Amino acid sequence: MANATLAAPERETWSARLKDAGFWADWAALVGLLVLVVVFQILNPTFLSAGNIASMLVAAAILLILAVGQTFVIATAGIDLSIASVMTLGAVAFGQSYAAGWGLLVSCLMAFVASGLVGAANGVIIAKGKITDFIVTLGTLSAASGLALILSDGKPVTIIDPGLLKLATGGIGIFGWSVIIAAVVALLAHAVLFHTRFGTHVLATGGAPESAMAMGISTQRIKIAVYSISGVLAGLGATLLVARIGAAEPAANTAFLLNSVAAVVLGGVSLFGGRATIVGPVIGALLLIALVNGLTLLGVSQFYQPLAVGIVVVLAALLTRFQR
């Protein structure tokens, strides 16, 4: 009788949760991913094959890293529209350094430096110049793209290196090295955001900037730091992108920008700052990749894929109204 008595309130609690729009808003990305997996597996049994899962994870690695960087920025109520162009600039810096004979490690470092400097510049202009992040990062989006084209003369640099080849093709089981690197980045980001003073200051800066300043938090330094983090992670994404395609391409892929923001929104991170998670954007990135991959396996035209992604993101944005 005691167990039956306890079970009734528990059932009522779960029933109330399922009727609560906030519950579905908090778990939208995970529920959406599970639904996509079930539907695509029914429609095409190869969807959950080991080879396809490995392919999806590799495709998600770069997006996941960019989404983590975007999460830090959005947690402060900002946005980084330049992240894809900054990654392109980092890739070009990598390619030009390698072509000059500077070696693999120095070329990787140059990708980090170039991207990190643009990220830091974004933060300084936004924090010190008190200019809205939308305008600043929109400007650096164009500037970074132009600089990448100037440095490369608009020509891609083919890079054939054993180290990069191993990075692109090696791994442990279905987890490629790029996937493992992305997972480590996500774990470190989670630890920094939720288990350090810096992470607390990031969330305070986004949630209540005036209160944060009253407590002695330098919100300007925090903003410079998060945009620098976004830039450095764009440099890491550039290195993985060069390894994946075997070349440093000067043309920016705007899909990375749109999808990095989409993954963050799907993950339940508040666009108004102060509320963030790392697990959410990771699941959001996986959802977007699974959606595109599944549609491709079903033979759906690529013209319809951006439409599907856009609809999913808008629905996720609507659900954020009900987040607790």
Results as ranks from 00 to 15, higher is better:
Ser107Pro: 03
Phe94Arg: 04
Ser97Asp: 09
Asp133Lys: 05
Gly69Pro: 08
Asn122Ser: 01
Trp177Val: 12
Ile65Asn: 09
Ala182Val: 03
Gly123Arg: 00
Thr71Pro: 12
Gly101Met: 09
Phe134Cys: 02
Gly154Gln: 08
Gly101Phe: 12
Ile181Trp: 05
Ala120His: 11
Thr132Val: 13
Ile135Met: 05
Ser107Cys: 08
Trp102Gly: 06
Leu147Thr: 13
Ile159Gly: 01
Val92Leu: 07
Ile160Leu: 15
Gly176His: 02
Val68Ala: 07
Leu149Asp: 11
Ser82Lys: 06
Ala143Met: 11
Thr132Pro: 03
Gln96Cys: 12
Gly101Arg: 05
Phe175Cys: 13
Ser107His: 10
Ala100Ser: 15
Phe175Tyr: 13
Ala91Thr: 01
Leu105Pro: 12
Ser115Leu: 11
Gly154Ala: 07
Gln70Gly: 12
Phe112Val: 09
Thr158Phe: 15
Gly176Cys: 04
Asp80Leu: 08
Tyr98Gln: 10
Ile174Glu: 09
Pro156Gln: 13
Gly173Ser: 06
Phe175Ala: 10
Ala84Asn: 05
Ser82Asn: 06
Pro162Asp: 09
Thr158Gly: 11
Trp102Leu: 14
Ala100Gln: 15
Ile159Leu: 04
Val92Lys: 03
Ala75Thr: 00
Ala111Met: 08
Leu109Met: 07
Ser145Asp: 06
Gln96Lys: 09
Asp133Glu: 08
Leu167Val: 11
Phe112His: 05
Ala182Tyr: 00
Lys128Trp: 15
Val68Glu: 01
Val157Leu: 10
Lys128Ile: 12
Asp161Trp: 02
Thr71Leu: 12
Leu141Phe: 10
Phe94Cys: 12
Ile126Cys: 08
Gly95His: 00
Leu109His: 03
Ala120Phe: 15
Asp153His: 10
Gly129Glu: 03
Leu147Arg: 14
Trp177Cys: 13
Ala168Val: 14
Ile83Tyr: 02
Ser152Pro: 01
Ala114Gly: 03
Ala127Arg: 00
Ser82Leu: 09
Lys130Glu: 10
Trp177Glu: 14
Met87Phe: 10
Ala91Asp: 00
Ile83Gly: 02
Thr158His: 12
Gly163Ser: 06
Val113Ala: 11
Leu165Lys: 13
Val73Ile: 11
Ala100Asn: 15
Phe72Val: 02
Asp133Gln: 09
Leu149Tyr: 11
